[in-house]
């Protein structure tokens, strides 16, 4: 079964980002999406802690610790960047000014509910900007493995973990599929050609709808 690697999932998500789009990438895995922008397209990346149009990490030893992203990693600036305070930053988020937010997830439900901030009552709870980021962006996309490490589906009928947001996810890029959330259902858009629909459905915790053509999900070696 040709399962996409994490780099390939990030690559696939990057193909849907238009030139000039304003984009927020969640901490961790979603940050990889920035590496795979198609040639000729340049998105403008937003970080919650107050930078628009930041670039790659600096070389080790070149860090400026006043210039960090939401994951507290050092970044650099691109020409035409801007600084702003936290209230303006989240006005950009909730106010509908971002084109796309790409987040990781523990679970996504067929009604678009997202669980990505808490695995339960143990330990120290931490939410950061997750609950804000799921509101306001024109598209809220999730990138994740299709199933959890123990094989349980991450695409489910209803989330079992604490919710980050209700009915907020519009598209999911996984290691096995590209799926849209439409009318409270998962609609299959792409799958690897060698993977049967039945096998994909078996790895998915809610019904996959076929509505229109299903394209081949093929990513380059990365």
């Amino acid at each position: 079964m040709d399962k996409l690697s994490t780099n390939q999932i990030a690559w696939r998500a990057a193909q849907d980002i238009a030139d000039g789009a304003y984009v927020n990438l969640g901490i961790g895995f979603p940050e990889k999406v920035a590496q795979y922008q198609p040639p000729g397209r340049e998105a403008i990346f937003h970080t919650e802690n107050g930078i628009l149009n930041f670039g790659e990490s600096p070389a080790p030893g070149e860090e400026d610790w006043d210039l960090i992203n939401a994951g507290k990693k050092a970044v650099t600036l691109k020409p035409g960047s801007a600084f702003f305070h936290h209230a303006d930053s989240f006005a950009m988020v909730r106010g509908g000014h971002l084109d796309v937010a790409i987040l990781g997830a523990y679970e996504v439900a067929e009604n678009g509910d997202l669980a990505n901030w808490s695995t339960g009552p143990k330990g120290v709870p931490a939410v950061g900007g997750a609950m804000d980021l799921v509101h306001g962006a024109k598209r809220v996309a999730v990138i994740m493995d299709h199933v959890a490490k123990d094989g349980r589906p991450k695409l489910v009928q209803r989330c079992s973990l604490p919710l980050t947001g209700v009915g907020c996810v519009t598209r999911i890029y996984t290691s096995l599929a590209v799926i849209d959330v439409e009318g409270g259902r998962f609609v299959l858009r792409e799958k690897p050609p060698a993977l049967s629909f039945e096998a994909l459905q078996a790895a998915t915790g809610a019904e996959l709808l076929l509505s229109g053509p299903v394209a081949d999900l093929i990513a380059p070696e990365l």
Binding site: E48, H85, H86, A87, S89, F90, V93, R94, D113, S118, V127, G128, G129, A130, M131, D132, H135, G136, P162, L163, T164, G165, V166
Partner: peptide, 29 residues
């Protein structure tokens, strides 16, 4: 939530006792 924290502080400074936000609707918070 981070954006709510920022806006609560902004509201405190701006003399706005409460406001409505989509953030956290339907969640434990």
């Amino acid at each position: 939530p981070q954006g709510t924290l920022a806006e609560r502080i902004r509201a405190g400074g701006a003399g706005i006792p409460a406001f409505y936000t989509p953030t956290s609707y339907g969640t434990d918070l």
